[in-house]
């Protein structure tokens, strides 16, 4: 018993992470929608305005964190849905790594875009 510390079994850790990201996304997604549809209108988007927002470190880091949590929450959700349907064995391994690869591509492209707006990492 004494040697048991923070030894999450994979199932439990992912379950908790899915909930924690959910709570975070709830707030940030509401903010995102509000800012880019109600404060600024979607059809008035310009490169300059996006850049101006992204050049602030706080906004940049919030958006990158938003991307990371959303990707995790979404991809893990898809993976769970497939496990629930009885995905097992080799198929499961293939699906898992395909999803991981897709996430990496998404994160890479997303951060590249954020950097393009901010003109490099905003410091």
């Amino acid at each position: 018993m004494a040697e048991r510390y923070s030894s999450f079994k994979s199932g439990g850790r992912m379950w908790l992470l899915q909930r924690v990201t959910a709570a975070f996304l709830l707030v940030v997604l509401a903010f995102h929608f509000f800012l880019l549809h109600f404060v600024h209108h979607a059809d008035e988007v310009t490169l300059a305005a996006s850049s101006a927002r992204m050049e602030q470190l706080s906004y940049y880091s919030l958006m990158v964190l938003f991307l990371v949590t959303a990707t995790f929450h979404g991809v893990n959700g898809v993976y769970n849905a497939l496990i629930n349907q009885g995905l097992t064995g080799t198929k499961r391994t293939v699906v898992k790594w395909t999803l991981v690869a897709a996430s990496v591509v998404l994160l890479f492209q997303g951060i590249r875009t954020a950097n393009a707006w901010a003109g490099g990492f905003p410091l």
């Binding site: 048991r4 079994k9 199932g11 629930n84």
Partner: peptide
Amino acid sequence: GEDIKQKRLEIIEQEHGVWRCQ
């Protein structure tokens, strides 16, 4: 008792234990 409870939790917290409940 605590020991048996640990054992029981280890059974139900497997991947196909409680976490599958939607």
